[in-house]
Design a binder for these strands. Structure first.
Lengths: 238, 238
DNA sequence: GCAAAAGTGTTAGCTTTACACCCATGA
DNA sequence: TCATGGGTGTAAAGCTAACACTTTTGC
């Protein structure tokens, strides 16, 4: 088993999700930031933010660094999606991409420098992207929606404390369907992952809802090969 | 975004699973083949079969080729597991490993050349392996067991037709728990993924069980980013 | 009081689980 | 006829989904 004379470039890209209101309906929905390519191939087309992996950094560090450099965003959640390595997926020299997906809070998303070469798009209504990036986004969307149903990733979109309504609206925006408030409450309560705080939110024209926080003692279901053994694979910033 | 002068080696490794009887109890259980390292680092220790990715082959092709070269096995199922890229995971030059997991049928597993440098081990009772390979195997085991509950990967361990008993024994061996034959039958029948054949198996000292086959019209649940769009990511050999 | 969302109660229908019991065969 | 698994029946328990209803606030 020895190293043959190869020259495969190793890149990372990230599908970044944030919740923002749609301009038409005002409803909360998933958006992703894209960067415009400024060279061939696919010059001028929109693409996922990404870059090359440096020798001294892990794949995940490379993803986080590229995120910050290209979009100025710091994600609340970062997880590996898939390694894309088809020979013909890129014109030009052979490149393998390790793709991550990330979640950012709305305040963080609003800080993102939007300009000529960085713009947010609704995740379900994207233009034609460079490379195989449309396929990648579709897969990331599928993973996010699947994982939303059995894990606690919704917290990445929320602050330290939140009402059950706020949590439900996150689920509704991601899953694209209305949820019964009564049943949602029971389902969450039975999961045992939330603890009620002593505070309520007053000011609304209705009964003040209680604030909850996530129970830190309860572990995530699947946070990767390293995370499962508590060495910290998936990056969760509290 | 330009390529910096890097020299990261790209490798593939595979966690290969087969069902074989345990020597003590005779019960069917998961086994994996390991290869002995013949050079530093970790000289003499057991490791996952793997090798370098060539410039002209996809990651999946590289995994399949290495499988064949190191263990002479052709898998019935092959799926990407994870890309491991921590800086300090290997002594020596920086290496990133794309790890796959594979399932092979028992006939195929028996063909595997076992010798001084290739040996089968029970998946739940491994020695200390080279690199981070124990962590990797644990993760692959978790993925296999999770996926067994909602997808149709059990077919990779079976022939074209099989009895419900045979299918149940595959599930029991992988999940390490007894399943009620009556409830298992109904669960499988309701899933609609099997069709009964006109044949039964005679010769046993009991009522001859019917043979079933998988309904080819029913799709797998999750076979990867490319597979989901029917371009063939996960490799399923019928 | 009224609107609006918070929160509780209730019921039908479905799924899961446990286990009783009959069936068909070889020896 | 007996042992052995194949295959069917059934009922309790648990979960899901739909929706009625009460509670608490601001105006």
């Amino acid at each position: 088993m020895q190293q043959s004379g190869q020259a495969i470039s190793l890149a990372v890209s990230t599908v970044i999700f944030a919740l923002r209101p749609l301009p038409e309906s005002g409803e909360s929905a998933l958006w992703i930031p894209l960067v415009r390519r400024t060279r061939e191939p696919y010059d001028g087309q929109w693409a996922l933010p990404g870059g090359w992996v440096d020798n001294h950094e892990s794949l995940e560090d490379a993803a986080a660094r590229n995120l910050l450099e290209t979009t100025a965003l710091e994600p609340a959640y970062l997880e590996q999606l898939y390694a894309f390595g088809e020979v013909e997926r890129s014109i030009g020299p052979r490149a393998v991409s390790i793709v991550y997906w990330a979640l950012v809070r709305q305040e963080e998303a609003d800080r993102a420098t939007e300009g000529e070469n960085v713009r947010w798009f609704p995740a379900d209504d994207l233009p034609e992207l460079a490379f195989d990036h449309n396929v990648i986004v579709d897969y990331a969307l599928w993973r996010l929606r699947t994982k939303m149903e059995y894990s606690r990733i919704a917290r990445a979109f929320l602050g330290e404390t939140f009402t059950l309504s706020e949590l439900r609206i996150v689920h509704e925006a991601v899953l694209q369907k209305q949820l019964d408030p009564a049943n949602f409450r029971r389902q969450i309560e039975n999961s045992g992952s939330l603890v009620p705080t002593d505070h309520v939110v007053s000011g609304g024209r209705h009964r003040p809802p209680r604030l909850y926080r996530y129970d830190e003692g309860v572990e995530l279901v699947d946070n990767g090969p390293l995370g499962r053994l508590k060495t910290g694979s998936t990056r969760v910033i509290h």
